[in-house]
């Protein structure tokens, strides 16, 4: 799964950190940090985090094989 957060919109409510604590966290006080590519077994947690966000700042990508192939190509060719 791929995720992006609009950090202009984020108001540091921290609901995502409770829902998916290994994906989202605070650093430097109120600054949200997050993993853009959480492992598959965290999908459910991340979906819950996106729903829980009071300002709806979390966007979750769709599965797009052609797009994923771009990243795989990079990794294969180093």
């Amino acid at each position: 799964m791929r995720v992006v957060v609009d950090l202009n919109r984020c108001q540091s409510y921290g609901q995502c950190c409770y829902a998916a604590p290994t994906v989202f966290r605070f650093h430097n006080g109120e600054s949200l940090e997050y993993n853009y590519a959480p492992e598959d077994d965290l999908d459910e947690q991340v979906l819950r985090a996106a729903k829980a966000c009071p300002v709806q700042a979390i966007s979750i990508g769709i599965e797009d094989e052609a797009y994923e192939a771009l990243e795989q190509k990079v990794q294969q060719h180093g």
């Binding site: 799964m1 791929r2 995720v3 590519a37 990508g61 769709i62 990794q75």
Partner: peptide, 14 residues
């Protein structure tokens, strides 16, 4: 964050 973990998601089939 590993550097290959910052790829942006797509919201629609491009």
């Amino acid at each position: 964050l590993p550097v290959d973990h910052i790829t942006l998601p797509v919201q629609v089939k491009l």
